[in-house]
Simulated assay, not measured.
Amino acid sequence: MTQKYMSIEDFNETLKEWTGKTIEISKHELADDDNTILELTSISYSKDTRRLDEYEPMHTLQLNGSGEINTDEKKQQSLPSSLYEIPIEDSTIYKFEDSKFTLITDRGTYTIKLATDE
């Protein structure tokens, strides 16, 4: 098991190599768990300096592409837009371990890996 902590720059460069592939994103944020399958077409970031409160992130990782989210009822629904957003902070920890990324923020944990045909 190889674990590597990364800078955001290293994370960005490594994740870009997955463009054009199908990824799976698992989110555990507060009491909310979601799994999303996404055809990754591009990666971008946004910065919002006009936040209404501290819950809105200043920085957001945007995974662009079409996909489906698995709901609590074990049903799949199309994503409402061609964008999956992950809030990031200056304190976000980026790890790469066993062919998967883990982003740890104050709000939750996000895991990104290549999807498999199981």
Rank of each mutant, 00 (worst) to 15 (best):
T2W: 00
Q3C: 01
Q3K: 06
Q3W: 00
K4F: 01
Y5F: 05
S7T: 15
S7I: 08
E9P: 00
E9V: 09
N12C: 02
N12G: 00
N12W: 03
N12F: 03
E13S: 10
L15D: 07
L15E: 05
K16P: 02
K16A: 08
E17H: 01
W18A: 06
T19F: 01
T19K: 15
G20H: 12
K21H: 09
T22G: 01
I23F: 13
E24F: 02
I25D: 04
S26H: 07
S26V: 11
K27A: 15
H28T: 08
E29Q: 14
E29F: 11
E29W: 09
L30S: 11
L30R: 11
A31K: 15
A31I: 15
D32P: 01
D33G: 04
D34L: 03
T36V: 15
I37Q: 05
I37K: 08
L38S: 01
L38Q: 01
E39M: 13
E39R: 10
E39N: 13
E39D: 12
E39C: 04
L40Q: 02
L40G: 05
L40H: 04
T41V: 14
S42A: 15
S42T: 11
I43W: 09
I43F: 07
Y45G: 13
Y45N: 11
S46N: 06
S46E: 15
K47Y: 08
D48S: 13
D48Q: 10
D48E: 13
R50K: 12
R50C: 07
R50T: 04
R51K: 02
L52W: 04
E56P: 01
P57Q: 07
M58V: 11
M58G: 00
H59D: 08
H59Y: 15
T60G: 09
L61W: 01
Q62T: 05
Q62V: 11
Q62N: 15
L63R: 12
L63N: 07
L63Y: 10
L63A: 12
N64Y: 03
S66H: 07
S66V: 05
G67W: 09
G67A: 06
G67E: 04
E68P: 00
I69Y: 00
I69F: 00
N70H: 01
N70R: 04
T71S: 10
D72P: 03
K74A: 10
K75A: 04
Q76R: 06
Q76A: 01
Q77P: 00
